[in-house]
Amino acid sequence: MIIDVISAFFILLGALFFLAGTLGLLRFPDVYTRLHALTKSDNVGLGLIIIGLMLQVDSWLVAAKLLFIWFLVLLAGAGVAHLIASTAQKRGLKPWKK
């Protein structure tokens, strides 16, 4: 019961970070700033959701698999962000200035 509450707390908190990332995608002015929003908050959001889910599993194998998923998304997220940013720059996209 208490586990369920803690687990729900982490999952909801994670969802809040996904909301922040999506808001950033909509509200930030250019491709570079939008990448910041997506990579960083989605990474934290997924991490928190994974923690929430890990509290619910009954085998360490599933827990390890969840952690591994987070690790792969982390790698892919950071790598893709870099690739998009460097391509944007090569195409001559100027970063937004205040």
Binding site: L16, F17, A20, G21, L23, G24, R27, F28, P29, D30, Y32, T33, H36, A37, K40, S41, N43, V44, G45, G47, P95, W96, K97, K98
Partner: peptide
């Protein structure tokens, strides 16, 4: 990386987006 997530969240939830990129 947790701080990184908080940092973004902090910036986007303001009425006016708080950034000055460089």
């Amino acid at each position: 990386s947790l701080l990184g997530g908080f940092d973004v969240a902090k910036r986007v939830f303001y009425a006016e987006v708080k950034i000055s990129p460089t």
